[in-house]
Design a protein around this nucleic acid. Structure first.
Lengths: 226, 226
DNA sequence: GACGCCCTCCTCCTTCGGTAGGAGGCGAGA
DNA sequence: TCTCGCCTCCTACCGAAGGAGGAGGGCGTC
């Protein structure tokens, strides 16, 4: 005997889910809501909600923001996402926010029931087909910053030191003070950095350095020159 | 009949895993490696490896870097993590890199076997106890950028548009062209942004905006004024 | 010793970024 | 209607950023 809630603004879809649950999980209580607010209200009334099935297209909660709101206001509430979105990234982000499952709307009825029972039993459910077809991302990502990495590796130690401070938003003057060198010297370094990174301004340099771990690069460089 | 490989530098542990597999998955072939390089070499020899169980404490691959390397060099190879690390973040990152499962070393033998078969059947396995006890993170994270969020919400629509372009590294001139307004107007907007964000230069503004989803904020704002 | 690389600093100059202050137009709401 | 906030644009001024070009010193290699 479970209490479930489906939060979806499409009545027909709620109905379909209801039918699946009625057939596969008899004597379950199914609550319905067509908005995030409605879902949270209903959840107040019924203390013992075992699972919320949350659509990602709710009118008052676009995308994962709805999940985030629920997690902030009712961290005790188990939430599974029910969405047409099959993007791997979305699924991971949902997990990140604490979702206990992710069910795509294209899931066949039989699998859907299996997924629900899995989740209700305290397991986790994710679309295996998507999660098992891992990311082109790994390949896609590396060649992009492969170029940056190569350029970064051409920087000298001092230039790296300057670049690190650039990424912290420091002005030439501040950098000069911190490194105890003249501002003109800082300018020289900055110019060299811009040239080597192939960009036209400090802002671009910061964006190019992006998420690279410059501190790691720096210590690595220090060790090399040891 | 599966072919599995366990990559762990602790022989005793490999032995234990071997015993579990022998008892629960008879006539499986178990390969062993004590380093990342060794694992990749062995994987070359045996084309039909169904699953690699990767420890996160390998001497030549600290943490998730080993997983990353495998994914880059052999994206076809299904890898599950086998680690003592029970950190939620680590698990999510592993998934992110394309792991097909995550098994903690504290998993009892019975559950371990269930997890392995699940993975070998093409499902996904994650430690339910950890994943179902979701993050204090949601609360921890928000107060940090609560301040930034408040400041960002004070920006007007046009100011947001300008800020978005600032974060792309655009100069005032470029922004002026893109928005089809005079550069002096852009300057006015930029000044207002700096004042409202409480920073002293465009670089600082970009860093302050940081990871905030400005585009989302913008559409949100548009909808509000509708 | 000569060469190359790096770090340091300088001057001169241009462009960019940012502030201050003012001003007109426009739409929403009291 | 009048007010208020927002967007638009302007002038004037000044400091920051960056390019060009030169120059000296330290350090390691051939």
């Amino acid at each position: 005997m479970y209490t479930l809630m489906v939060a979806d603004d499409h009545p027909l879809f709620r109905e379909a889910i209801g039918a699946v649950i009625a057939s596969g999980l008899p004597d379950s209580l199914l609550l319905e809501a067509d908005s995030l607010e409605g879902a949270l209200l209903k959840a107040e009334e019924h203390e013992e909600v075992d699972l919320v099935l949350l659509d990602l297209g709710l009118p008052d909660a676009e995308g994962l923001s709805g999940l985030k709101q629920i997690r902030e206001r009712r961290p005790d509430l188990p939430v599974a996402i029910l969405s047409a979105d099959q993007d791997r990234r979305t699924i991971l982000d949902a997990l990140d926010l604490g979702a206990v499952g992710y069910i795509t709307k294209s899931t066949p009825r039989r699998d859907l029931l299996a997924a629900l029972t899995r989740i209700l039993e305290g397991q986790l459910y994710l679309p295996p087909d998507i999660m098992r077809r891992p990311p082109a991302e790994v390949q896609r990502q590396t060649p992009i910053d492969e170029d940056v990495r190569r350029r970064l590796s051409e920087l000298t130690i001092k230039q790296l030191e300057v670049l690190i401070r650039l990424t912290h938003g420091a002005s030439n003057k501040v950098i000069a003070r911190e490194l105890d060198i003249a501002e003109t010297t800082v300018k020289t370094h900055v110019s060299a950095i811009l040239r080597k990174l192939g960009v036209t301004g400090r802002v671009q340099a910061i964006l190019a350095a992006g998420s690279a771990d410059l501190d790691a690069l720096l210590t690595e460089r220090h060790e090399l020159s040891r």
